[in-house]
Structures are given as C-alpha cells and as structure tokens.
Simulated scan of single mutants.
Amino acid sequence: MGDEEVDEGVPALAERRDLEQVYQPAEDSHLLAEAAREAVEPGERALDVGTGSGYVASALAEAGAEVVATDVNPLACEQARESGVPVVQANLADPFRASVFDLVTFNPPYLPTPPEEAMNDWMERALSGGESGRVVIAPFLETAGRVLAPDGRVLLLVSTLTDVEAVEELATAAGFTTREVADESHPFERLVVLELRR
C-alpha cells in the first residue's frame, strides 16, 4: 500500500496490534533451526521458505550450506538481507528451477484464524494459516516437491494446533513420506518438525 493510500488519522494495523511487521525468532524458529543444523551437510544447497528475519537461513549458512531464502514480505526480505542472507521476494519457491535444492525448510503460518478475526497486514500473513491452520501447506508441498533434488528432503515445522496428522496426510497425498525428527511441548501446543522425502 502506498503512502497516499494510508488514512493519516488511522494507525496502521501493526501499530494497533503492537506488533512488528517481520516475524522474529520464537520457539518454533529455534526448533526448526536446530533440526536444520543437524540435517544439513556442508556444501548442500538449501532453501529457507518464508524466512522472516532470516534466522533459520542463517543457521543453515553457519552449518555450511549454500543457502538462499524467500519471503513475500518486502520488510522481511530487507531484514534478512541485513543479516547477510541472500533472499528473493517471492511466494514460496516459485522462482526457482526444478530439482535444485538438497534441503528446503519452512516454518509456515500455522495459527488457525477465523475469517472474522483476520487482519490484513504482513504479520497476519506470517502467522495465520486460515481456518484450518493449513492453508499455505498444500501449495508449499507442491512447489517444494518441484524444487527438490532427487535425494532432497524438506523440514516442515507444524503445530498440534494445525493437526499434525492432517499435515502428514497432505504430504502423503503430495508424494512424500514423513517422519518426526524433532518436537517440543508448550502449554497450548506441541511443535513438531517433519522430515519429508520423495
């Protein structure tokens, strides 16, 4: 939205919500980053989808991967670049050629959000997974499958709020095998990192 479209008397949604516009590392980010560090081999090509601040991508780079990241949010891309992460403003893995990445990581927006509670800003896009919490996962599986190298794998962060079994069913329908490689319990949810392979 251009400055000319902003009503000067109404604070931006992010200001009303007291939220930043770029998702910052939290428990889910830490769990995925640790799983990614353990999974990646030095010299492998890795893609971090929806990179936010670039935290997981940075962990992959520190582990020796050749990493690139994507995010739809231009503010996230700017912050990730400031952290030294090569990033492309894009939806999921859309701009990349087929069969190029050894590892794809994704911490998707997974909070179930009823339509009447949706707020149309960048932080909402980083958090909300639609009513089911899985609205971004099916399109991600399609694009991730396309860009994976023949022996590549995906690390996907999911929550029990999103229904882990339902995510596994989506992955199976997309041609992947799944296994849990990390998890962490919190008061209202269990976070799980799924490894997906063709």
Rank of each mutant, 00 (worst) to 15 (best):
Asp3Lys: 12
Ala61Glu: 08
Pro11Ile: 15
Gly64Asn: 09
Ala63Asp: 04
Arg16Met: 13
Val22Asn: 06
Val100Gly: 08
Arg134Val: 12
Gln89Asn: 06
Arg37Ile: 14
Asp18Ile: 11
Phe96Asp: 04
Ala39Thr: 15
Leu161Tyr: 00
Leu92Thr: 13
Gly145Ala: 09
Ala166Ile: 07
Gln21Trp: 02
Val136Gly: 01
Gly152Met: 09
Ala35Leu: 11
Ser132Arg: 05
Glu8Phe: 03
Val87Trp: 04
Ser132Thr: 14
Asp163Asn: 09
Ala14Glu: 11
Ala63His: 07
Val181Leu: 11
His186Tyr: 02
Val68Thr: 14
Arg125Asp: 01
Glu4Ser: 08
Asp7Ser: 10
Ala39Pro: 00
Ala173Val: 06
Ala63Glu: 05
Pro187Tyr: 04
Arg125Ala: 08
Val72Met: 11
Val181Met: 11
Arg45Glu: 10
Met123His: 10
Leu60His: 02
Glu168Ser: 02
Ala35Tyr: 05
Val158Gln: 03
Val193Gly: 06
Val88Phe: 05
Glu124Asp: 08
Gly84Cys: 10
Ala138Tyr: 01
Ser58Asn: 11
Asp94Ser: 11
Ala126Leu: 06
Ala98Tyr: 00
Gln89Phe: 03
Thr178Tyr: 01
Ala173Thr: 10
Asp102Glu: 12
Ala26Ser: 10
Thr113Tyr: 01
Ala76Pro: 00
Leu191Asn: 03
Thr70Ser: 05
Ala118Tyr: 09
Pro108Met: 03
Tyr23Thr: 08
Thr177Phe: 01
Val56Ile: 15
Thr178Cys: 10
Asp102Cys: 11
Arg190Leu: 02
Asn120Ser: 03
Val85Phe: 05
Glu116Val: 14
Ala59Asp: 11
Glu131Val: 12
Glu38Trp: 06
Ala171Glu: 04
Ser99Cys: 07
Ser53Leu: 12
Ser159Trp: 00
Gln89Tyr: 03
Ala76Gln: 06
Glu82Phe: 00
Ala36Asn: 09
Asp28Ile: 14
Leu155Pro: 02
Gln21Met: 04
Asp163Gly: 04
Leu31Arg: 14
Glu169Lys: 15
Glu82Ser: 09
Arg37Gly: 05
Arg45Cys: 06
Ala59Cys: 12
Thr177Pro: 00
Val49Asn: 07
Glu165Gln: 09
Leu157Thr: 06
Leu47Tyr: 02
Ala63Ile: 14
Ala33His: 12
Ala57Cys: 04
Arg134Ser: 01
Glu41Met: 13
Pro108Gln: 02
Leu19Phe: 02
Val68Asp: 00
Leu13Gln: 04
Val100Leu: 14
Ala90Lys: 12
Leu196His: 12
Pro25Glu: 10
Gln79Leu: 14
Val67His: 03
Pro95Glu: 12
Ala39Cys: 08
Pro109Trp: 07
Leu155Cys: 05
Arg97Ala: 15
